[in-house]
Write a protein that binds this DNA or RNA. Structure first.
Lengths: 226, 226
DNA sequence: TAAATAGTGTCTTTTAGACAATATTGT
DNA sequence: ACAATATTGTCTAAAAGACACTATTTA
């Protein structure tokens, strides 16, 4: 049986919350096509490599980190015939949520790597679309899962968790109602016993991510319409 | 730049509600590998074809229908190195939700095609896993979207819609509370003005699918735990 | 008439959302 | 004491869930 030949890549939508806003990791391309244009980090899947393995490898190469505390999941695949001028390339996009890190390490393929606010467009290939899909996935997942904690360091305060929601959803949330919701939803966050110190105001208790995989009931964002 | 060579397929998780239960369309393989084993319908993506186009083409070939009333969305991609003995094959799985149809038309590649209850395992390749992922996606989507109507003919009763939920979730729902929820959630279903006739009991009003893409508030299934 | 299914109303409990009040720190 | 942030409590409105009751058909 004969069939068409493809190349397969993984591309990463790596999101974090920095300076109170949702930001994405972009690299400036160091080779053709789209030389010098901003793009999502990514690369070819190797000959003997699983898709998730390739995604983890690229994440480690581009960010210099693959430690715990973050989250990586498959997002979607994109395979329009003309999406890559080099030929038929299908890309499997992954979504990574990470705590705010010092600074991205430029990988071997990328001339530069930078965090940018997610509003940016004009990316290489069909990466504008992939980025938009990743942002929408992240926004939805915060409603139904405890994944907001993936944007936080291992121990965090309720206020820090709330600021993640505010940054990702782009809307403000009542701190008092959020506190009650976060602390009473089973499996969402667990107290460590510790507290912050040195800041202004009353010290805040520290929490770590709970074991639940689904928030029940969910934490719904306000919708403009159904 | 050199890179590994892949083949790309699409596989379909085609679900419907028949005889009060959730069923999936399976085909008996007519060629190697996994000759005579049950599998999800699917096939290779053609040289100049988009992924979604390939999925729609396979759906039409296998079911003999691509008319309106159903739903087709990308599910996930699977690319473990050993998943296909013929070599490196990445498959992009799609999920289709269809109303109960007369009977599947056997496609050219498949010796037989049959509806089967979704409990079935022992499928070819990694199709057990893909099927499980598709079922879970369908169950989740019924909570947050009006997609249950994709399992119904163009005009349907509230009771028929409720029976879809009961079949997909495998739990019974109070008909009176469901009626209120379905008819008062904006954009869920719209009355056609018609009604059933000929059955026993009071005739039921007919509805068609509403224009909303998201149910707000959602219709949550009962959870055993968070 | 009875049986069957469709649809409405009512009550209770849970949750969201607004927001007052209290608690605990640094200056 | 005052400013700042954390945390708890109170009230109201929306929604879910249990379930009595009414409506409209066929047999």
């Amino acid at each position: 049986m004969s069939y068409p030949v493809f190349a397969v890549t993984v591309d990463l939508v790596v999101l974090t919350v920095r300076e109170g806003e949702l930001q994405v990791l972009l690299v400036r391309r160091g080779c053709e096509p789209f030389l010098d244009r901003w793009a999502l980090p990514g690369g070819f899947v190797l000959a003997d490599e699983d898709l998730a393995t390739a995604a983890r490898r690229e994440l480690a190469e581009e960010t210099g980190l693959d430690g715990p505390g973050g989250h990586l999941e498959q997002l979607a695949s994109y395979g329009a015939p003309e999406r890559d001028p080099r030929g038929r390339v299908v890309t499997v996009a992954y979504l990574a949520l990470l705590p705010d890190l010092p600074a991205p390490t430029a990988g071997t393929d990328a001339a530069e790597a930078e965090w940018r606010p997610v509003g940016q467009t004009g990316l290489a290939f069909d990466h504008d679309r992939i980025l938009a899909d990743g942002i929408e996935r992240a926004r939805s997942k915060l409603e139904y899962t405890p994944l907001a904690a993936a944007f936080c360091p291992p121990e965090f305060t309720v206020a820090a968790l709330r600021q993640v929601y505010e940054a990702v959803w782009g809307e403000s949330i009542d701190p008092r109602n959020f506190h009650r919701k976060a602390t009473t939803t089973p499996g969402f966050i667990d107290p460590t016993g510790g507290a912050t110190e040195g800041g202004t105001g009353r010290p805040a208790r520290l929490y770590r991510r709970g074991e639940a995989s689904l928030l029940n009931p969910p934490l719904l964002r306000r919708r403009l319409d159904g």
